[in-house]
Design a binder for these strands. Structure first.
Lengths: 116, 116
DNA sequence: TCAATACATCGACCGTTGTCAATCTATTGG
DNA sequence: CCAATAGATTGACAACGGTCGATGTATTGA
C-alpha cells in the first residue's frame, strides 16, 4: 500500500496506449486496471461526485460522512484510495483535511478507455 | 450472476448523470461501479484490446488463450463478465464462439467518467 | 456412430477488499 | 495543560473475485 506501488492516473495516460489501439501489454493493463479499481466502487464514485459538486469544489471528511451513510474510518479509507490513485488531492488546513479533484485525472482515464 | 442483475453499459449512460455534474445517488453509483468493476481487471482489459485489434475486429477463445497466458476456463470466465456488462458481443458460428466489441460501449462509460 | 475439437460450467482454493469499533495523533480553545 | 474535535490508523471479520483442474455439452469430420 506504499505510494510508489500506485501510479497516478495522470501519469498512466503518458505511458500507455488506449485500449482499442493495439494489444495492451501486461504491464500497461496492470496499471490501468489499478486506476480503474480505485474508481470501481459505489462509495468512491459518490465521494468524487460529492467533492466535485461541493462548494468551492472541495470538502472535508465531516462533509462527506453523513451523506454517504458510512463510518468516518471507512470514508477516510476510501479517500486515501482515491488520493493514492491520483483522483483527489488532500490539503490540511487547521484541524480539517480538504479534498479536491485532481485536474484532468478523470478525463485522463476516460481517454484511455474510449481510445482517444 | 443472472443477466438481469447487470445493466449494460450502454443503458447506464441513458439513465445516470456523469460523475461531476451533481452528487450521484446510491443507485446510480452502484450501477456505474458494476460497469467499472467489469473493466477493472488486467486480463479483461487485454481481452478487449486483443479483440479490438484482431483481424475483422473479432476473435474466438482459441485466439485469446495463448497471448494472455491464462487457462481456457479462466478466459471464458472473463469473456462472460465482459459480455454480461455489455462490452462484448458473442456470436456462435460452428464450433467457435466469436467475440466482438459492442459499438459505443467504451465511449459510453468513458463519457460518464469524464463528465460529458 | 465415434473420436476430436471448442467452449462453457462447476467446485475449490486463496488472496483481496469493504466495513466497523477501537485506538491513536494532531490541532484548536479555554 | 486539558478537554474537545477532526481525522488517520489498526485489527478483525465476512464477502467477493481470479484462478485452475475436472467435467459437461455441442459441433464437426470420418
Amino acid at each position: 500500500m506504499s505510494p510508489t506501488e500506485v501510479l497516478s492516473v495522470t501519469d498512466i495516460s503518458a505511458c500507455c496506449t488506449p485500449i482499442t489501439r493495439e494489444p495492451m501489454d501486461a504491464a500497461g493493463a496492470e496499471l490501468l486496471a489499478k486506476s480503474l479499481k480505485a474508481l470501481a466502487d459505489p462509495a468512491r464514485l459518490r465521494l468524487l461526485s460529492l467533492v466535485a459538486s461541493h462548494e468551492d469544489s472541495e470538502a472535508c471528511v465531516c462533509d462527506l460522512t453523513e451523506p454517504l451513510g458510512l463510518s468516518q474510518p471507512t470514508v477516510s479509507h476510501h479517500l486515501k484510495v482515491l488520493v493514492d490513485a491520483g483522483y483527489l488531492e488532500r490539503e490540511k488546513r487547521g484541524t480539517w483535511a480538504y479534498y479536491s479533484l485532481t485536474p484532468d485525472a478523470l478525463t485522463s482515464v476516460s481517454g484511455l478507455i474510449s481510445g482517444l
